[in-house]
Design a protein around this nucleic acid. Sequence first.
RNA 1: GCCCCCGUAGCCCAAUCGGCAGAGGCAGCCGGCUUAAACCCGGUCCAGUGCAGGUUCGAUCCCUGCCGGGGGCACCA
Length: 965
Amino acid sequence: MTSGGPGTPPEPSHRYTAALAGRIEQAWQDRWEEEGTFHTPNPSGSLTDGDGQHADPSAPSFFVMDMFPYPSGAGLHVGHPLGYIATDVVGRYRRMRGENVLHALGYDAFGLPAEQYAVQTGQHPRKTTEENIATMRRQLRRLGLAHDPRRSFATTDPEYVRWTQWIFLQIFDAWYDAEAVRPDGGRGRARPVAELVAEYEAGTRALPEAWAGETWDVLDAVERRRVVDGQRLAYVSETPVNWCPGLGTVLANEEVTAEGRSERGNFPVFKRNLRQWNMRITAYADRLADDLDVIDWPEKVRTMQRNWIGRSEGAMVTFDVIGGEEVEVFTTRPDTLFGATFMVVAPEHPLLDEVPTHWPDGTHAVWTGGHKTPTAAVAAYRASTAAKTAVERQADAGKKTGVFTGHVAINPVNGDMIPIFTADYVLWGYGTGAIMAVPGGDERDFEFAQAFELPVIHTVQPPADHPGGAYTGDGVVVNSRNEEIVLDGMDVATAKATITAWLEGRGVGKGTVTYRLRDWLFSRQRYWGEPFPIVYDEHDLPIALPAEALPVDLPDVPDYSPRTFDADDVHSMPEPPLGRNEDWVNVTLDLGDGPRTYRRDTNTMPNWAGSCWYYLNYLDPGMRDVVVDPELERYWLGPEHNAAAGTSGGVDLYVGGVEHAVLHLLYARFWHKVLYDLGHVTSVEPFRRLFNQGYIQAHAYTDARGAYVQAAEVVEDAASPTGFTWQGQPVTQEYGKIGKSLKNAVTPDEMYEAYGADTFRVYEMSMGPLDLSRPWETRAVVGSQRFLQRLWRNVVDEETGEVTVTDDAPGTETLRVLHRTIDEVTTEMEAMRFNTAIARLIVLNNHLTSLDRVPRAAAEALVLMTAPLAPHVAEELWSRLGHPASLIREPFPVADPAYLVVDSVTCVVQVQGKVRDKLEVSPDATEDALRELALASPRVQRALDGRAVRTVIVRPPRLVNVVPA
RNA sequence: GCCCCCGUAGCCCAAUCGGCAGAGGCAGCCGGCUUAAACCCGGUCCAGUGCAGGUUCGAUCCCUGCCGGGGGCACCA
């Protein structure tokens, strides 16, 4: 406990040092655990508080949550706990405000990081995952987080997997009825497939378009299954998917970067036609976009989700092609139809499977690409675009290439013959993969028209100063009339509505909404994930396993590492590791018609599956009969479950990094809405309030060769041209992510050792606003330690360990500082501005330091206010101040308004906005009195220097501004 | 290329409605304690708010343009 060598005078034996802090912290952590201090009571059921009581009905519920951590093998650095500390402070504060707080932390333990770590260490992923979780639990326990330990779990727990698979089967067993009315009044909701079948059997619903001409009663059993399977919210289909040989698995669109590489690992991704599981998230596109308006999320994240969904309103228009074909296009600008001078289809478009054998009359030389026939030209262009990698496509964006297809279409509004081109600036994956090109109204079309000598017609009058080219703005419509309709003179919006109605009347078009969002590719060819609870029969159609058969456990396989390939191997095929166990794959089951042999699905679910519903599992983890107890769901998550929950309901505060803005948060919202439609939850949204914390980064240093050196060993050195040296040589300061690669890692364990957990917590919270990224600076941590040391000294004698507070009433000045602090700290805590809350606490603390004896009333209030931030030292001081029970539910101090009023305030007197005098005035001085006082001031008179007064602006009681003539 | 966020003291950051630019911390400097040093204690220095305009009695705050940093989107018809 003492520091220094022999002969050094010992430190005061009761000083709040790192060693003492460590002893206090661990003792309280043990006591909290023994007493069940953080056991959060449910309103009913087996989970009660530490005293065996259920939730107090008069206490509002508050559900605070952190984004699910991966238990990575690398361990934590000081950046990781930032959000956990913040949610802990919120949770502890809210408990002291009398709320019933639910806060727990589980582990997202399936997925690539866990699997890769297992592969590296040559052990089974379950073993390494469990070890990693144990390490992380230990590191986090030392932080003193007030989590309910009974509610922690991992996504890999068999009981959790059971319900993940169960929810999958709910989605598999559901279809989307776009016409059904929801409880909230909107249209469109998921319904059980059984209801669809019942309607088909009763003949009250027509079969889907693909089965036109058939009726349910004439279909055989396999055909009926195909009809239904095609409509399930989870379905198998053979579609172009993102195949990533480097990872050995297929990926969702959301996991592929704009550069066409995997978000994890940055490997090339190729489009391949493969049979894979998909989730029909597109059915929820509108609701996912619309409901962003009813939740309290950062605008940035809502914008990112809206952009990803990419809702776009316009019209489908059908163009006849000479020779009998037709092409449907999607356009957001049907008003510009009269300006369509050509069409473009994507190279993958089926219209190109057959093209004319000769160039039609009027074909420009530049249109042919030098080929003798359209057949040759199109084949060559298709081949060249297919060979392009995503990276090349990216690099070529903007360059307009293409070729005339020989096809000619007829513009439905005026009968004009217009050539059809193919070009890769039209994407097969969006809309219909075909466009009408309006070079007068679209910049891309204009560029293409320039390159291929195509005519330009403006249908909106450009302003006089328009530089030429496409005009995309609003204005007066021109050049747009036929025998039946005149758009000329209208504005764009009116013209859109008018022409859409006309198209619909003629049966050649229809107002439509399209989305950028694609269905969610849901299968992965990895080992460490949830197996699909699906088997296939001899027809190769999926069959759900019954709920009693869940969970489907992962089989043992000879090799669980994924088969990866050369990252650029386009011809490789995914090979699921689960397929390596024949005994598991081929299974005999009795699914109602006697024992038969089935083949299991060998894919696993993506990592996102487990994080799609984990918030529900916190309510009542472990064995249970339902996915979530309806009473608990209403209590913790339901609409209006507390004053801030609103009509959406959901988790009251969800804190995590912005990197999940689209992926996890979109998927989880989708699953939640399916569960809502099927009646399993009453909340419309899973996360009512989202908060993105910033990142903690750190300085890193490179030597002359550009190699990173140990940041911890770098010293400031004015003699170095760079300002820093490492082992005597100059090094350059950089800034970046904390980690091994930049040699700048600092771990929480080092902080516990050198300062204690409370100091670490206070430092992390005091560095700046929670949503801002900031640099870690170990040498600044001492400031937080000094604060706690001073707090300690205000209560405890460092030499004797005696409590030194006096029971005498505090003086007026102390009461004022105290109550002003309570008032300000309350405001700051409510707004999650912990950095400024800490600043106020320091002010009060420093004030108490200046007194001869610290009054108990002030000390106790300060200890209670510090408790959410530095809980261990607060508990210790509270205990030493004579309170045997934990302060966890002690009421947070409340300011007495009597001490918030002041006798006098400083009134600033300005002349023309410049401060010329200051007056001490009563806080309720009137406007007239202040004006008189100000004008009487000699300094004001001097500043006026004889000028007349034009006007006097008075803002009682703090400001008077005299404006000279 | 387009969109969003951020630029305040050597550093991290404060500043309700547009009203005295400074709450807190780090570092520095001075002093106290100490045989000396660290710890600790007291004191102190430090910016006119990235730049240029505009609106206003008054601008860190509102508007326009530019510079720097961070993020998102990127042929989406």
